[in-house]
């Protein structure tokens, strides 16, 4: 199963696929890559199709938007990949979708803390940096939640739900942004204090808890990704 593999193996495999998708410009090659990744997610990782479709929505919107530009505004400046407007649009859309699928395959099968540990213990990145980034990742949903609460908690009259565009724009006033900024600053300071008081520093080497050793199957995953990339490159 892909989920059990080393986080760095999954990072490398998805990186190879994203890079390849960004280089090939033939629909069959992109279709092959897309189908293989999709099959891996649906059959091997048993991810529900509806769930994958939801997670792919941003890429679908991006693909639609980009292909629309190539379709309606056929311009030599845009046709770097060659071919007609419709053909270019299809390639660009497919490329975005395949890159999205490869990224999704990595995100769906890898926990952020497993990746952080692998980057620290195997890739030898400094623990302070990795843990700092992890803490920052924690703040993003908290910041989004703060903004949502700020917007929701304005005094409201009657049973309206406050979803009007005007209210949303008003909620982006400098004063509201200042509250968000101050909150983020307070959180960051407190988290930095918390981490340092809990011993995060350059002096003591951290223990290698939950260290994952690189196994043959991890190499196999990377090799499979390279093989798929090679086949796609041949087709492309």
């Amino acid at each position: 199963m892909i989920g059990d593999r080393h986080a760095l193996a999954k990072l490398a495999a998805s990186g190879v696929l994203v890079l390849t998708a960004s280089l090939v410009d033939r629909l069959p090659a992109l279709a092959l890559m897309g189908v293989v990744i999709l099959v891996a997610l649906l059959a091997l990782e048993r991810r529900p199709a509806a769930h994958l479709a939801r997670r792919m929505l941003p890429f679908v919107f991006l693909a639609a938007a980009m292909s629309w530009i190539y379709l309606v505004a056929e311009n030599p400046a845009y046709t770097a990949v060659g071919g007609s407007g419709a053909g270019v649009a299809a390639v660009v859309a497919s490329r975005i979708l395949v890159m999205g699928l490869a990224s999704l395959a990595f995100a769906e099968t890898t926990r952020a803390d497993d990746l952080a540990r692998a980057l620290e213990q195997n890739a030898r990145l400094p623990r302070r940096i990795v843990q700092g980034v992890l803490a920052a990742i924690q703040f993003l949903p908290a910041l989004a939640e703060d903004y949502r609460m700020l917007r929701l908690l304005q005094p409201r009259r009657g049973s309206g739900w406050g979803g009007r565009i005007g209210a949303r724009l008003a909620s982006l006033s400098p004063d509201v942004l200042l509250v968000l900024f101050a909150g983020a600053l307070r959180r960051a300071s407190a988290a930095a204090l918390s981490m340092q008081m809990r011993g995060l520093g350059p002096l003591t080497p951290a223990s290698r808890w939950r260290e994952r050793r690189w196994q043959g199957r991890d190499s196999l995953l990377v090799a499979a990704a390279i093989a798929l990339a090679g086949m796609a490159a041949t087709l492309g």
Partner: peptide, 10 residues
């Protein structure tokens, strides 16, 4: 401030 005390994801 317990909201800022936690630093790990799990």
């Amino acid at each position: 401030d317990v909201e800022a005390q936690l630093v790990a994801l799990s």
